[in-house]
Nucleic acid binder design. Structure first.
Lengths: 372, 372
DNA sequence: GTTCACTGTGGAAACGTTTCCATTTTGGGC
DNA sequence: GCCCAAAATGGAAACGTTTCCACAGTGAAC
């Protein structure tokens, strides 16, 4: 009996058959008190734990769900995953994690290994939900799954996320409300992020609807130098731009840094707004105006959605002809979070606010116009 | 043949036995070209993929390693995990992720489910490596494992990390070099983080060795209000404190925010230094002086260490009496990263530097005294 | 024509579990 | 004391794979 003890070892020590051990340990059938005790003693003595592989093989479910995201570097994904893991854990599931690095090929390859591991469900974020080999495979193998962050209108697949278009439109409206006339949208991975595109769309719509010119699109790299160069060129061509909307908070912070390096003050010269509402956005100075999204809840919701579909499915065995429950689209609420990085366009008020900026020797608390 | 096709289905379609299919697909024995082609066609036609559960059950290895960390909210863990995932993937392994929330009970519970899933190895960060039920279980079941971030001197367990004591001592030396006489150490989860303790020890040592009074310890909560209250009390009792060392970067940023709320300028009134070197620390203003640690590399190294031990072990089957290779301690280099959050104590130079602070309307690039 | 080594092949056992089924035991009602 | 239902139990099949083993063919050397 080298290696881990098996149910067979327990049976032998307890002096009974393996079926009895299984029944005792799973409470899945009648057992005498005597046997029950003997088994429990044997388990204790041996330190026995079930081998989930044997179990899974028999029951044909792994009690594991896969999580496939572009990266963990962006805190939104980290938060969502923590939510997924938490909810999954509560429901008796484990998660297997793969990062795709915003690469569609890696998405597909990762997914294949995940499927061959017999994961019971998949929670994922893809580059382009409208053209994704990974999603095709998922549907083709009728693997239960749920998108997060991807929140496309047409519901071919279950998804939970926020309405990016509406959120971005709100951002645009807030800017217009503050008298900004000319804005630009800054994005990384624009072509491999439908979120960026949706946000840009909503942003444009706000300006269009107010009769203003649509904001330009600035595609950049995360490399700080690249950002500086790009922004420098943009402001050379178009010095009137008074506000930037970054496709995510991390990028927004990078923009602020780059703007400073270019000798522009935020928000006096240029305002900046982010997206996601990561925790750090609230720690820095100026604190970042952004759209706060419930990443963690998104993860929790997705996990519960996928897993509930799983258990429902297995019990509903008498109707196995349906290809699974129809896709569900869950839209979670977002919230605009104002911050010092967004100020009105060229007004007295802007100048007054500037006085509370750390540049002044003022010792007043800074969080004056923060909603939180 | 409802559900996924199995090797049996392939065999049937190819008109051969399952053993042949296995041999073809694994290149694990002689096969005629004819059979080989038939099998390949059948695989193609059926879209067959191995069921890894059956495989694992037979081979008694899951090709999965577990990752157990306190949280994903702190970017250091997220980065390390990305490194682990990347390296594991390259070596044909998947990772299963559990967060313990800095809770020793959760560590143990999580580990148990992980072990019952037959993970081949475990990479983890625990609250207290000297008194960890999880680590005991790991040794007791002789599961290959490796600590990350925990980097205790005595090597009962393999570990990869940086020398926290030395790093913190260096931080102390830098401060002393800049004429600071009185410092304090700020920590969250002090009692469930040996990292914090090691850093505090090293920090104290630096001051002690220079004949200065040992810095006080400020234990706080992450809640921003709590931090403000704590710091306020500290500076009331001890107004001479000119520099804070935070146990990690996230906390350092929170400290800067709290100090501002208390009307203190950073670094003019109080300097702040962090630990970890997270990317964002370099984006904010003032950019954070910190100790930069190779988190991602730490993850990669740990993954390679654990997995190499695995494969080495299985091949070395003729000597199964040894309880596994002896623990390896890998110490990765750190680097002090200067930043505007740390300035000399009350000197002319400090005032000059202050001029480059965004408070001034100066348009000079800011990263003047940054090493990077 | 016999032996031999080798290639190719499939049957079957094994991995650890769950669960169906058949068997034995129990105990209550007569 | 008998009968029958219900409770308790263990044997064995099954899940999908790998791999040992035995067996059939194929040439080559004698």
């Amino acid at each position: 009996m080298t290696g881990k003890p098996t149910i067979k070892d327990v049976a032998e020590l307890a002096g009974c058959g393996i079926a009895t051990v299984s029944r005792v340990l799973n409470n899945s059938g009648p057992t005498s008190l005597e046997k029950r005790q003997q088994v429990e003693e044997a388990v204790e003595a041996l330190g026995f734990q079930f081998n989930e592989m044997g179990r899974s093989l028999k029951s044909n479910q792994s009690k594991a769900i896969a999580v496939l995201v572009p990266t963990l570097t962006n805190p939104v994904f980290a938060d969502a995953i923590e939510g997924i893991q938490e909810a999954a854990s509560e429901l008796g599931y484990e998660i297997i994690l793969i990062c795709s690095n915003y690469n569609a090929d890696a998405e597909l390859a990762g997914l294949k290994t995940l499927i061959s591991r017999q994961v019971d469900g998949v929670i994922l974020t893809v580059s382009d939900p409208h053209e994704s080999a990974a999603l095709d495979l998922l549907r083709q193998t009728s693997t239960p799954h749920c998108l997060i962050f991807n929140h496309s209108g047409d519901i071919q697949h279950s998804a939970v996320g926020v309405d990016n278009v509406a959120a971005a439109r709100l951002v645009g409206d807030k800017m217009i409300e503050l008298n900004h006339k000319k804005a630009a949208f800054v994005a990384v991975h624009f072509n491999s992020s439908d979120r960026s595109k949706a946000r840009y769309d909503g942003f444009c719509a706000a300006f269009r609807d107010s009769g203003l010119r649509e904001p330009g699109l600035i595609e950049v790299d995360y490399a700080p130098k690249d950002l500086e160069v790009s922004l420098s060129a943009v402001f050379r061509d178009d010095p009137d731009i008074s506000v930037l909307f970054a496709s995510n908070d991390l990028l927004a912070l990078s923009c602020i840094r780059a703007l400073r390096a270019l000798g522009k003050r935020v928000p006096e010269d240029v305002s900046v707004v982010g997206f996601d509402g990561i925790a750090i956005a609230d720690l820095v100075e100026p604190n970042l105006a952004t759209v706060s999204t419930p990443c963690r809840a998104m993860g929790r919701t997705a996990a519960k959605l996928v897993i509930s579909g799983l258990t429902g499915k297995s019990s509903d065995q008498n109707a196995p002809d349906q290809p699974g429950p129809e896709p569900t689209l869950i839209t979670l609420p977002f919230e605009f979070r104002s911050g010092n990085s967004l100020a009105p366009y060229r007004t007295k008020i802007a100048d007054e606010r500037a006085a509370t900026h750390p540049s002044a020797v003022a010792t007043t608390p800074l969080n004056i116009n923060q909603t939180k």
